[in-house]
């Protein structure tokens, strides 16, 4: 008897969802007819006729919309990949420093987390872009001929990173790093105090103890949080539009403005991000499984 009741509930629910979808699709249908937009993907192969400031793949305005979107994706992946590495380095360092016995190191780490996590990423990006780069009047030479920072961006060995790309990388890494630091600190805290005391009493140095004893035990607690921070980083990279970097969202925005194909554009963007999420979570899952396997 309970069997049938639960079935009725489910089908009722399904029915409501379907009715709702029909209603929406119907509305969309009428609105598309009304505005004369229609629904198709043929526009993908028409020339884009807008230019992109930055691209790794060859690109010119005569290329198709599809190619422009692909260029946008490569630009996005470039940012995500680089920021992912830097944010991990920053996050792990700040997380470990947060457990340092030195009060000042601990204080700096806490202050960093406290400031970064309580202010919007967008504000931070604008800060790095407008204040960090565009308002530099005298170029800064860090190691004289090697790294040069100016309002033209960062120049490393003659390889030039634009101010847009650089500020995006710095902003995303510093922001995500603070979240990762918090996760690392939580993970380190999850290792029982006895383990820290045990390696110390064996005369093992802090760096070896962390590397070989504490971090391996903290990893299972850290990895899930790390994964979700990487996913957030990928999604947050779309704020590139605020500093004028041509990532996939900025390109999609332009494409939609030119073609009016908002639904199609949205679907393509959605698919792309589902795909990126899948890649990141699978790689992390792979790590996760390997670590768990080694532990067993």
């Amino acid at each position: 008897m309970r069997f049938t009741k639960s079935y009725i509930i489910q089908y009722l629910f399904l029915l409501i969802i379907i009715l709702f979808l029909i209603l929406i699709i119907n509305n969309v249908h009428f609105n598309l007819i009304r505005t004369g937009l229609g629904f198709d993907f043929a526009w993908l192969f028409r020339p884009a006729s807008f230019s992109l400031a930055e691209h790794i793949l060859p690109y010119s305005p005569s290329n198709s919309f599809a190619w422009a979107l692909l260029v946008g994706w490569t630009n996005s992946l470039r940012v995500i990949f680089v920021a992912l590495i830097f944010s991990t380095i920053i996050g792990i360092s700040a997380g470990i420093l947060g457990k340092s016995h030195n009060y000042i190191l601990k204080f700096i780490s806490r202050l960093y987390i406290l400031i970064i996590r309580q202010t919007p990423l967008l504000l931070q990006l604008l800060f790095w872009y407008f204040v960090g780069f565009l308002s530099i009047r005298n170029p800064v030479n860090i190691i004289v001929p090697i790294i040069n920072i100016s309002n033209q961006g960062i120049n490393i060995f003659g390889y030039i990173l634009t101010p847009e790309f650089s500020s995006l990388i710095i902003g995303l890494s510093v922001f995500t790093g603070a979240y990762i630091a918090e996760i690392v600190r939580g993970g380190l805290n999850s290792v029982p105090k006895g383990q820290w005391e045990a390696y110390k009493s064996l005369g093992i140095s802090d760096s070896i103890g962390l590397k070989d004893i504490i971090i391996p035990q903290a990893l299972p607690a850290i990895l899930p949080g790390l994964t979700s921070q990487y996913l957030n980083l990928a999604k947050n990279s779309t704020l590139a539009i605020a500093v004028g970097y041509a990532d996939i969202y900025a390109v999609s925005d332009t494409v939609i403005n030119q073609t009016g194909k908002s639904i199609e554009g949205f679907i393509l963007l959605l698919i792309g991000f589902l795909f990126i999420n899948l890649i990141i979570s699978n790689i992390m899952e792979f790590f996760n499984r390997n670590i768990l396997k080694n532990k067993a």
Binding site: L32, K235, N236, T238, I241, Y249, L270
Partner: peptide, 17 residues
């Protein structure tokens, strides 16, 4: 899995549709 900015943008654009 979708960035918020996309949801907001399409929320502005698509809700009328």
């Amino acid at each position: 899995s979708v960035p918020l900015i996309a949801i907001l943008f399409f929320g502005q654009l698509l809700t009328p549709l």
